[in-house]
Nucleic acid binder design. Structure first.
Lengths: 232, 232
DNA sequence: CGATCATTCAAGAGAGTTCTTGAATGTTAG
DNA sequence: CTAACATTCAAGAACTCTCTTGAATGATCG
């Protein structure tokens, strides 16, 4: 029996480390800002390596390497489609994982609060509109729903009834937003900074503006209406 | 307006990278097998640095460094209590995060399946007993619930009605387990290898044994009865 | 079938992580 | 106040990660 006991002991240690090493690989994949950015873009829909590189501000070779790290961790899947390789999230549980990461970050990490407060003086801009509240406001005609992502992403799919004004054009197209109703802005996800900035800018301009609590992936996942088509 | 536009642009980039860097720090904290092990131990209850170092097979200085990485990421909290510093999980959302990590690992990472299959030839041992099923079996008197953690952890808190036989003593204390009823084994959590090995060993010995789907932290979190006291 | 395009591979410089060792800090007990 | 104790800090060696550059692969198009 002692041989078996010894075997159990040594086996335990290596099996445990191997198992934890596999989980740690997923953790490491989440441990880089660019890779989190890539995951956010992939949460919008599938994308080619080149598209992801452009959106993420990376060289193609570098983006490819990050995507391979994500693939090894089982977070994304790459599939050849014609000349390109198209990546997508490996499953909806990946969204759950990033959401869990976000919740821990929001609650416990001073860094996150500090970053947000550094850029947006008033805490009000943190106060987000829930999906259900937005639907009510839209039904009542009390709101302009503003999608501040770039036009190509809007065209690829957006919340039904949203108007697209990319953040960069917000200043010059302010006259296209009725001053009489509140604005609710959204972008790629709950951490997407575009919406924070749009809200900050609109408030500076004297508009009543708030952020939507979540972006397109969360909206889609809640089974709420999404439409696609060319931007205005 | 153009100044403001430019400001928005540059701000956007740095704010985004800062935010994602904060989240990535949490990811990195999850990106090391020893730190995942420490989190599993902390999920049992609060522990001093020395206790964690011993359980994790680390030097005290090294354990301290890992714990500080976890603390910077907002995953654990350290509090001075007398001469010692006692660490605990920063919140229940940390359990949610590790659970999300586990789910992605189980579904998508070949490495996890490979590791498990390498050590446990029969897939049956993966087939875990749910909490509700266990409660029914216990009510019917059809089961021996076996806690295979070391005695000190058992004494610190365990599932009500469980019997403690640490894995290392399982061979020599086999006669203390009735051969007439099924055995359900559990340990520290869903990835804890002790229970896997106990099940493998018991099956080799011709016993009917299965793993509980979760460990003490999950049981406690489900609001199910926990008792503390000295081991037999 | 050769040209072109998208992606991956390979190698290397620079930065960050991990673990070890020994000293420093801060708290308690006598 | 001093000794003992638990933890943290600091520095350095070995290793891993990240990004860049240029070449290699593999698919499509004419």
């Amino acid at each position: 029996m002692n041989d078996r006991q010894a075997a159990i002991g040594s086996l335990r240690l290596s099996a445990k480390l191997d198992l934890f090493a596999a989980f740690a690989e997923i953790g490491r994949a989440l441990g880089n800002p660019h890779r989190l950015d890539l995951l956010e873009h992939l949460a919008q829909g599938e994308r080619s390596v080149e598209a992801l590189a452009t959106k993420g501000g990376l060289t193609v070779a570098n983006a490819s390497q990050h995507l391979q790290a994500l693939r090894r961790a089982g977070l994304v899947i790459g599939e050849r489609r014609g000349k390109q390789i198209v990546y997508r999230l490996a499953g909806s549980d990946v969204l759950d994982l990033t959401a869990a990461l976000r919740i821990v970050g929001e609650r416990h990490t001073d860094a996150v609060r500090t970053v947000i407060e550094d850029y947006f003086q008033s805490r009000d801009s943190l106060d987000a509109v829930e999906f259900a509240a937005l639907e009510q406001m839209m039904a009542d005609g009390l709101v302009t729903l503003l999608d501040v992502r770039p036009s190509d992403e809007f065209a690829d799919g957006h919340v039904a009834g949203a108007v697209n004004i990319p953040l960069a054009e917000l200043g010059s197209r302010l006259d296209q937003i009725s001053p009489d109703v509140q604005v609710v802005a959204y972008c790629r996800g709950p951490w997407c900074v575009l919406a924070f900035e749009a809200v900050a800018f609109l408030r500076e301009q004297g508009r009543e503006a708030r952020r939507l609590d979540g972006g397109l992936p969360e909206w889609r996942r809640a089974g709420l209406p999404v439409e696609a088509g060319s931007p205005r």
